[in-house]
Amino acid sequence: MSTYKVPTMAEMAASGDSPEILFWVGCAGSFDERYKAVTQAFVKILNKVGVSFAVLGPEEACTGDPARRAGNEFLFQMQAVANIQVMNGYNIKKVVTACPHCFNTIKNEYPALGGNYEVIHHSQFLQQLINEGKVALQGGGEFKGKKITFHDSCYLGRANDVYEAPREVIKALDVELVEMKRCKTKGLCCGAGGAQMFKEPENGKKDINIERTEEALATGASAIAVGCPFCLTMMTDGVKNKDREDDVQVYDLAEMIAKDMGI
């Protein structure tokens, strides 16, 4: 029986190989029960397409994003410098990640500390695979013809101007993409950015993820697509809060593609 392969950089280096890309898994992708499924789906796609990749495995550490955004620059740089040492040690050139926070940090903030890589988000990578015809979508899968809305992640959209790649990926599934009132440059945050994921919100009259979920539900979509582990958590919680978990699903883009590919 041939199984899926998840090579690590250490294994690759030991056999004198170097992969085309490093798949940066991130903490949520490694530890969060729900997001592990996204990591696994993405790895299956990489296997199926035959992309030469590796992960850092136990050598990966948090990029430091939440520490920097909570104001702890020392801790951020400790994480960042250590990660850069590891990545430079393996002579890594190209990084793909399914987390917009990791994506933003490695792409925009690591260069100042000596880490220079080509970094792309998995939505961009999936779009490339689709455009190159490497991902053979069946199109008749469970999403065909369904109404799907996409929630823009701040660190993908406004932070890095990636708006179209995730939408192209969704459209490739032969679905009806419906936009929320606040989308793209005007997209509303899920409430988790800026290290808010790791603390209770300040006092207010409503939680941000509820506000955003209401907007998503108002589109009449049967699924909310996201491209970020924090957004996935916040939107899933929002849908549960609204008692709609039976008829509205929250998916990451990679999961949707993997499902359509039948893997």
Partner: peptide
Amino acid sequence: FSPWKFAPTDRFNWADSVKN
């Protein structure tokens, strides 16, 4: 090395099921 309290040695456990 993670914002959540998980053992760093468990970081790669997600791959066990896929690899099988």
